[in-house]
Amino acid sequence: MSDTPLTPLEHELAELIINTLELEDVTSNDIDPDDPLFGEGLGLDSIDALELGLALQKHYGIKLDSDAEDNQTHFASLRHLAALVEARREK
């Protein structure tokens, strides 16, 4: 259970991550919006990043520009991801 409540968009994204990556034993309530998604936090890996990128494109029409930038900033945490979707969503 995380201490910080999720915004509706963060909640939606948490569900997207869990469903896309078929994460077992994780609910959106377990994800702290500031925790890292990759490595230590949620423990996603480079394949998950590819899948997440494709899911963001499919659901929100988001086009990522560069791999290095995406990994460093947009995918850092749920909060960062929500900011990306907020700014760049086309659907």
């Binding site: 480079s46 990043a49 590819l50 997440l52 990128g53 494709l54 963001l56 494109q57 086009k63 990522l64 520009d65 560069s66 791999d67 290095a68 995406d70 990994n71 995918f75």
Partner: peptide
Amino acid sequence: EVSEIGPATAQRLG
């Protein structure tokens, strides 16, 4: 052109 395969590359190839 890519320097590695990441989410942006996956999208472009898709």
